Amino acid sequence: MSLLCLSGADVARVTSTLSPSALQTLMAHVFSVLSTGETSASYTPPRITIPTQNHTALFMPARIAQARSESLRGTSIKVVCIPTSPTDVRGLPASTLVLDEETGAVKAILNASNLTALRNAAGSLLSVNLLGPPAPANIVAFGAGAQIEAHLDLHLRAFPSIQTCTIVNRAVNERVSKLADLLHARFPAVKISRIAHDASAPNPDPSLKDALLAANLIICATSSTVPLFPSSWVSDGTHVVLIGSYKHTMHEVDGALIRRALPSDPTKQSALLVDSRSACLAEAGELISAGIEGSQVVEIGELVSFDADGELIFDAARPPPPAETRGTTGPVTIFKSVGVGLQDVAIACAVVQKAEELGLGTHVDWA
């Protein structure tokens, strides 16, 4: 037998062929499996952490055993190394091994450095299509790393209605400029703006408040320990995506904004959406500090539905976004994600399958 090796360039070529619709449908199936509650349908053991000389190595195995689509089933382990030095800015090395379901041998190894961001972006896009505005016009993103690049690229492809895109970072540095130039080249019709903003510093740029008030969609992917902006800067009906926090000490938004996603009538469905109820309530600093309980959140997998062909069904009767005279104390919709291992299985298996169809990658004799 042979081992399929997919470089970062191979993976990029494969993912460029996957449409926003296909990616969000893939994640919808994953979240559906997660929310079924069937213990035999999936396996996500606790990750293993091992300190090395210059990194903290994380080993994350997972398996999807039962799913609507045969191609969704699989077993993988992702290995991510987090630099221990704050001056190491080379990124997070990540690799995923995919097993052959018949032989049990390793079927493929792929560079997964950008796959985590892509699968997160696909989940966020799904949340917008489930609860957010049907045709967002203005988007604001906090951060300038791989997560924000993947999110902005996917959402700008999915929503041609977007007219303005504002990138907010602690400093308008070379990374921000490169991202802005990249997006401008890909989406010349969209006005790309950049704002420097340190959430812990006084006197923020007044243009940030204006951009947030006009936003239909806000995406946060930072490690901030203080809220990036006050709830009063977010207009009613805005959809907010929170990707960054995964510790009790991390807070990308304040508790007031979190509570605006809760219904005033407890019999109504909450607009506080999560990828995993248990994981988010254990790890997401914003939800923990706001005192959010399990009954107050909805797993995204509980909202998805499919037709006989496994395609997503969306509510065609979703109301349009509020008028331009929106307030800043009314309801918003929020999606909080900390990421789940089943997403890694699905995206890795999908990439391997597509690479085989396209004849990409290098085969190494493993006999």
Rank of each mutant, 00 (worst) to 15 (best):
S2M: 01
L4N: 00
L6W: 12
G8M: 15
D10P: 03
A12G: 02
L18G: 12
P20V: 08
A22K: 15
T25F: 01
M27S: 10
V30C: 15
Y43W: 11
P45V: 09
P51C: 05
T52G: 11
H55K: 14
T56H: 09
L58W: 02
F59A: 10
S76P: 15
S76H: 08
I82T: 12
V89L: 14
P93S: 06
A94E: 03
S95W: 07
V98A: 14
L99W: 03
D100N: 10
E101F: 02
N111A: 08
L115Y: 13
L126A: 12
L130M: 12
P134C: 04
A137T: 02
N138Y: 09
I139G: 10
F142V: 08
G143E: 00
A146G: 04
L154D: 15
L154N: 10
N173R: 01
N173I: 01
K178T: 13
L179M: 09
L179N: 11
I192D: 06
H197V: 10
A199S: 12
N203R: 14
L212T: 04
A215H: 10
L217V: 00
W233N: 09
H248M: 01
E252I: 14
V253N: 06
A261R: 04
L262V: 01
S264N: 12
P266T: 08
P266H: 08
D275Y: 10
R277S: 03
A279F: 04
A279Y: 05
A279N: 07
A282Y: 00
E283L: 11
G285C: 08
G285W: 01
L287P: 07
L287T: 07
G291E: 05
G291C: 06
G294W: 06
G294V: 06
V297I: 09
I300F: 01
A308K: 15
A308I: 05
I313S: 03
D315G: 09
A316M: 14
P319Y: 02
R326H: 00
P331D: 02
K336N: 08
V351G: 04
V351F: 03
V351W: 01
L360A: 13
G361F: 05
T362K: 00
H363W: 09
V364K: 00
